[in-house]
Amino acid sequence: MQDKKVLFVDDSPTMRRIMVNSLKKIGFTDLVEAENGEDALEKIDGDVGLILADWNMPEMNGKEMVEELKANDQYKDIPIIMVTTRGTKDDVVTAVKIGVNGYIVKPFTPETLKSKIKKVLNK
């Protein structure tokens, strides 16, 4: 599981630092950071095996980014976990509809992050 290249997308530098710290603790070493959906689409490559993405971001938000990725044959099967402050039922339903594989509401614990990643990658 830890050999996967992880792309995490968040406009908050604080959240990106927290993610680096957490993902390294889980054991991931190949990490790519992106500031928003547009940046993520530029940085993604065929080696990425997991995407963690915020929803509310400038330029291109997480939902738009997921829709772009799911419409792309090369990237449509990469598992995506949404990590966001948006926690209404409607948001989660929307995420499921567009093809998101996991959903974490901020603030979250390291255990939640680890278990969701494990669940998504083992599917």
Binding site: D10, S12, T14, R17, N21, S22, T85, K106, P107, T109
Partner: peptide
């Protein structure tokens, strides 16, 4: 120390 780092998610939530 790591749990303190995690608690700092409040900054992103407050910022939003």
């Amino acid at each position: 120390a790591n749990s303190i780092i995690f608690s700092l998610q409040f900054q992103d939530i407050t910022a939003q």
